[in-house]
Each structure stands twice: as C-alpha cells, then as structure tokens.
Write a protein that binds this DNA or RNA. Structure first.
Lengths: 242, 242
DNA sequence: AGCGCCCTCGCTATTTCTGGGGAGGGAAAT
DNA sequence: ATTTCCCTCCCCAGAAATAGCGAGGGCGCT
C-alpha cells in the first residue's frame, strides 16, 4: 500500500492525454497517474452494450479475466450503483447488502483490490457508459479525505480520459446507415413503453402494417434478433429514451 | 454586450450550488454566473426524450417559447451536434450547412442570442441529456480564448449544476422497486440480448415453462405490460445490464 | 409450524409477432 | 436527373408469446 498524495500535475496530465496516440498510451498514463496519486489501482472501464468490455488500468490480468468469466459485471454493486448515479461515488456508500455482492467483494479483496474505492460514472454518445475508478487499501477517513480533496481533478481527468478513449475505440463511426429514422424512433419508443403493435400504430395514426415496417427496419439497423432485442439495443445505445 | 472575464470563484459557486434548495435557486445562480463571466447568456437546458424540456437560464422567455413552439429542438445544430459528442463544443465547429439550420441561426440572432456559443453536453442516468451553454456576442478570437481558458471550470460547473438539477427533477423517485430474483434477472438478461424463450430456457438448463414463469414474475414486479416492456424497464432501471 | 418466496415442471387455447412477398409517392442528396 | 432513402399501404402462413389452470420441494423468517 502506498501513500495517498494530492494533486499531481493536472495540466501536464491532460496535455499528455491530448497527445496520446493510442490505447497503449492511455495504459501508460494511467499507471503514471496511479503512482502520482499513490493509490493502489486506477481503472478505466468501458462497459459496452453486448457485454463486450474494454478497459485499461492497473488491475491484475488474472482478476480482469475472472471478472469477465464470472459475469461479475452483472452483480458488481459499483456497476449497478454508478449506472443509477450521476455523481462520483465512494464505494462505501453503495449497496453491498445482497449475498452475491458480498461474495463478489470478498473475491475482489482476495485478488488484491482495495477495500476502498471511488468510481466516477461517465456517459458518452450512443449510450456509452464507462467508469473511472480509483481503488486503495486504507482506512475510511483517509480515503474520504483524499477523494473529497481531489474530486474535481478526478472528474476532469475522467472526462478527458474518456474523451480520448472514445476517439480510439473502433466501431464508433456514427453509421448513418444505422441511425433510425424519426418514425422508427417513435415506433420503437412506443413498443418500449409497453404498447403492442396495434396500439402503437393507432397512436401514430398509421396502419399496423406500416408500423411493422418501421420496427423491422429498426430491428435490421440495430442488428437485433427480435423486437425485444431491438428495443434493448436502442435503449442501451441511447437511440430511444423512456 | 459585456466584457468577458475569466475564473469567477468556482469554489463559492459550487458551494452555493450544493446549498441550493430548488430550481429557483439554480435560476438565480445562473444569472449570477453570467454576470461574473460577463457573457450575454448562460443556459442550462434539459432535453427529455419525450420532447418535454426544462431549462433555466437567461434567454428571453419569448425566445424560449418560440424555440419550443417551432420545434427548433429537432433542427438546432447545437442539439444535434452535442448529442453525438462527448466533449464541449464551440458553436463555430458545428454543422450549419443545412438550410433549416441557417434559418434557425438567423432567427436566433434576431432574438438576441449571441453569434458565439459554447455548449457542454451532459448525460445522466436513464438516458438523461442536458446542455450547459454559454452564448455571447463577440469576435471569434476572443471567444476562442475565453472558452479555452475556462474550459475546465465550465465542465465542472456543468457537472455540478446537472447533479443538483437531477435531484430537483420530479419523477425521479426510486420507487419501492420489487427486486428481481437472480433467476429472473438471468432470464430477463437473456431475453434482452435477443434469445427467445426456448433458447433462454436452454441456456439456463430449465424447461421453457419455468423460464416463462420467471419472465411473467419479472414482468409483474416491473409493472410491465409485456416482455418487451419489461426488458425496457429492467434496462432503464439498471436491473439488468447488456 | 406456518407463511412467503424461490425454483422447478405440465397442459390448453388464444392472441400476437415474425418474415417473406409486393407497390407508390415524396423529399433530399449526388 | 437519377438515386436513395423515408413514409405509407396490403396479404399470408408459420412461429412465438400470453393467459389461464394446475403441481411439488426448498429455504428463511417469525
């Protein structure tokens, strides 16, 4: 365990971030950042739609693989909690009451993850969701003080970091071929709020068949296997909002 | 037109933000902020999926009403551009090439909106999308310099501002939320990634009937009208993650 | 011991969705 | 001016989801 330090050179770091030229540079930067802050781990974790994940950070590869294999994404209270939050959160304030959450925590600590943590949720276009997390072994008071004092820097860092990561991420080309037409968005939205096809068609004052055409078209654009899948993808990509 | 000034007391403002006690306080704060920066307008603009909008800021009420009535939300290049962006953007860098965009710009300037602007997209939980915008009348170089020098403060301000606005927004109450059982979560997740009932049942190694029971149970707990609705709700409540 | 919830399984009937096939008019972009 | 979307409409047959009715064993809490 290291010693927590405040305020590394935010300017220099953002400068280096802006001149970074690939994901490898980001990995290097994150390690540097960890050393400057004196925390045990810093992780940038991109939580992608279909369960694909990308991250860089200082966790052991073993833990990262375990996390993916065990499907911890689905029970990790950090993910669950940050998904509902806007502001950064101290791990201590999350809900660890469920059995699976406690088991996860135990496993995480056994793999060298700190007992303290601070996670910043970040949201980007097309439903992107990412986390910028600092983790550490230490007592509650020190951690509380550290995160409070550095909150703003960390928010900015998370912001700039994500900004760069977005640029490097492949497949982020805003495909015009995949963007839904206004009518398609309306149709999908109505289905997402529980209307069946007849009701949705009625609401839009079009025939049920026409509505079906929109849904089918949207489904193909979204690469979805069925209507439910299409609605799920549209939601998680931020194409529709309910 | 005022004189651009840098760096008002960010600390004091964030402090006042944190002690704000309603939307009226936010409106007051935003006016204060405008005076401190010496810009013509500052606007916080919450853009909801269903077309509902909330905002506070220093635009004329006349312009705000005109904006809503004319449906400018759908053609405003600031909205369009920021929706696809993560980083704040200078209005000059947006796409003003379409005919409707130029007409909108003309109308906006005629209503006292500045020829310069800087907008910060903000995204929150459940697909929330908001803009924090500064607008001004002035020349390109001054504006460029002003926004560059204050970028970080503005990002933080937008962040904290939205954080408070989220709290004041009604209908954000976390309902008693009957929580889904583990099997129900698994079932809903599989449906959300495109499996049909048979495939999902097979994946979970249970009979299709049992899977149906889970889905029905989850549907009732979520107060959903059908499976698609249930998946949508589970997603937007963060009960499942895909 | 009883209550409630979770997990598992079966049956039938009705309604709804899915996946093909078409067709025409309009607006915008090349 | 041609192409390329977008919007709108129609038919059909098979697949899937929905809505009821059941059943029994297990686990935790009071």
């Amino acid at each position: 365990m290291g010693f927590l330090r405040n305020a590394p050179r935010l300017d220099t770091l953002i400068e280096r971030l802006e001149s970074a030229d690939g994901l490898d540079d980001l990995q290097g930067l994150i390690e540097e950042l960890r050393d400057e802050y004196g925390v045990d781990h810093i992780i940038y974790h991109w939580v992608n739609g279909a369960g694909e994940q990308y991250g860089c950070g200082t966790y052991d590869l073993e833990w990262v693989n375990r996390y993916i294999e065990k499907g911890y994404l689905r029970i990790d209270p950090v993910i669950q909690g940050c998904y509902q939050r806007f502001h950064p959160v101290n791990w201590k304030r999350l809900d660890w009451s469920s059995k699976s959450a406690r088991a996860f925590l135990e496993d995480a600590i056994a793999h060298g993850i700190g007992n303290q943590g601070y996670s910043i949720p970040i949201r980007g276009p097309n439903g992107q969701f990412a986390l910028f997390t600092l983790s550490h072994n230490g007592n509650d008071d020190d951690w509380e003080q550290f995160t409070t004092e550095n909150r703003r820097d960390l928010i900015l860092m998370a912001h700039y970091f994500n900004s760069r990561a977005l640029e490097f991420e492949p497949g982020r080309a805003p495909d015009p071929a995949q963007s839904l037409s206004p009518r398609e968005v309306e149709a999908m939205t109505l289905l997402a709020i529980g209307y069946n096809r007849a009701q949705a068609a009625d609401t839009l004052s079009i025939s049920e068949h026409t509505l079906r055409v929109y849904v089918e078209s949207a489904r193909h654009k979204l690469g979805a296997l069925n209507t439910t899948h299409a609605v799920a993808r549209a939601l998680s990509r931020g194409v529709i909002v309910i």
